[in-house]
């Protein structure tokens, strides 16, 4: 009995860490929340004010004259880059998972799956390096001008100017590659483990193997796919280093086309802390903490949804991925 209590107390470190993170960020950013108000998420301005003037007091908060904080451009950048990543990653992930589950022989499947899913193990900063050194020049010089001349004619959001290669689409492409193994790994597992009787029934009725997969096996794994997509969404929302290195780190700027520079909430915290520390009132650093709080609450909600879908609704075994 004593052993159980003792273990339970030690295990309490985990909830304590989570509570401490949220509590510290909330308390620390409280003056910023008070000053910024709910308009924080709809204003499109991040302005530390005149750092050379004496601080003034507005509504009981000391600020530099002219300081104003709003993160609409970060929310737009985060949502758009994540959306692009999902639009690229989900179809490719589903295709690869179908091929792995149905077309690759059993003895090869383990090796090829392992190789593709190793993408999950590659550190974020290495993705950033690859994006910075290889993807940006390639996309900026070749693919973006081509896209602007073809797709851009039909869809204004794809029209030029195409810029240097840093921007929304590049961030989306790199993010897509980082989240696609989550979808492949989870879905492949679910497809292989679907009951074979339904699939055999479809084949016996004359369906081709693709039809059996598309109409019978894949719909059976629908919940797993939705859950895995939420997991991938959560990962993409919080991704920092790779986005920081390829997104162009826009400030107070809403993208006019898909090539424009953006920034995301996670990347902005890294790129702005140094300059925020120049604010003698400390409000800029506290506003960054408010971003961190908003980001963690969004991520927690998305992840909780993913686990509810996978574990409760979809009856997926808890594994490392899920």
């Amino acid at each position: 009995m004593k052993f159980k209590v003792w273990l339970g107390v030690v295990a309490g470190v985990l909830p304590a860490a989570l509570v401490a993170i949220l509590l510290f960020l909330a308390v620390y950013s409280w003056p910023a929340m008070h000053f910024n108000g709910p308009g924080f998420v709809v204003r499109d301005v991040w302005n530390l004010g005149n750092l050379y003037a004496d601080p003034v007091t507005v509504h009981g908060t000391q600020i530099q004259p002219g300081a104003s904080y709003g993160i609409l451009f970060l929310i737009v950048g985060t949502l758009l880059s994540t959306l692009i990543a999902l639009l690229l990653a989900v179809p490719v992930g589903v295709g690869a998972a179908i091929f792995l589950a149905e077309a690759v022989p059993d003895h090869l499947r383990m090796w090829i799956s392992f190789f593709v899913e190793l993408l999950m193990a590659i550190p974020s900063v290495v993705f950033g390096l690859w994006g910075y050194v290889v993807v940006i020049p390639f996309l900026g010089r070749h693919l973006f001008p081509f896209l602007a001349h073809t797709v851009g004619k039909a869809i204004p959001f794809f029209a030029g100017p195409t810029g240097s290669g840093y921007g929304l689409l590049t961030a989306g492409v790199v993010l897509a590659l980082m989240i696609v193994p989550i979808i492949v790994a989870t879905l492949r597992d679910a497809l292989v483990n679907q009951p074979t009787s339904m699939r055999e029934a479809a084949l016996a009725l004359g369906a081709t193997r693709l039809e059996a997969m598309w109409r019978v096996t894949l719909p059976g794994a629908r919940k797993t796919l939705i859950g895995a997509t939420f997991l991938a969404l959560g990962r993409a929302l919080g991704e920092t280093m790779a986005v920081l290195m390829v997104s162009g780190n826009a400030l107070n700027y809403l993208p006019h086309n898909i090539y424009d520079p953006i920034s995301t909430m996670a990347a902005f915290i890294v790129s702005q802390l140094d300059s925020a520390l120049q604010d003698p009132t400390g409000l800029a650093v506290r506003s960054l903490a408010e971003i961190a709080l908003v980001l963690s609450i969004i991520s927690i909600l998305v992840n909780a949804a993913a686990r509810l879908i996978l574990v409760v609704w979809g009856n997926v075994q808890r594994t490392m991925a899920a």
Partner: peptide, 21 residues
């Protein structure tokens, strides 16, 4: 449940918590 939630907290948030706290 909270272990699953903690996995979902972005690493930069953990870093910023470390900075603040």
């Amino acid at each position: 449940f909270l272990a699953d939630v903690l996995v979902g907290v972005p690493s930069i948030v953990v870093g910023y918590f470390g900075y603040v706290a």
